[in-house]
């Protein structure tokens, strides 16, 4: 079975989780042998931006030592052999068209999404 993991809700509790649960799930399933790819759309396209830094969270004397590093996490998906698609228009609408992104992403237009979905047995939309 080949599945496409669509991640749309960006930065959902990522400071507390220290990653994105949808990204983490894809990584974990792949490591367990699943055939899974990822599509970033909506606000989650920001995960691909290289220059993001969520460090510095502090409550009283408590300091976060491992802030989320979402671009690195996305890169780890491609390094594991997963295809990571990203919706071009969603990047453009957010002013991210000329911003440095991590490498190895596969752009897809909104018009191309339906064709992409046809390549998968199941689609999981988070």
């Amino acid at each position: 079975m080949k599945a496409l993991n669509i991640i749309e809700t960006g930065y959902r509790a990522t400071l507390e989780e220290q990653d994105d649960p949808g990204v983490w799930l894809a990584y974990t399933l792949k490591a367990a042998g699943a055939d899974v790819d990822v599509l970033l759309r909506g606000n989650a396209v920001n995960y691909a931006v290289k220059d993001q830094d969520a460090g510095g969270l502090q409550y009283g004397a408590w300091r976060q030592t491992q802030p989320p590093r979402l671009a690195e996490n996305i890169a780890s998906l491609t390094s594991k052999g997963m295809a990571v698609f990203i919706v071009s228009e969603d990047l453009q609408e957010r002013g991210l068209g000329g911003v440095p992104l991590i490498e190895s992403l596969t752009p897809v237009t909104r018009n191309g999404i339906a064709r992409l979905l046809g390549n998968y047995d199941q689609v999981w939309h988070w």
Partner: peptide, 22 residues
């Protein structure tokens, strides 16, 4: 966290109970 390649000490995962105490 296997995705981060860190053990439990290195990951130092956020526990909100610790934030409340802090």
């Amino acid at each position: 966290n296997a995705m981060h390649g860190r053990n439990v000490e290195e990951e130092n995962h956020v526990l909100t109970k610790e934030l409340v105490s802090s």
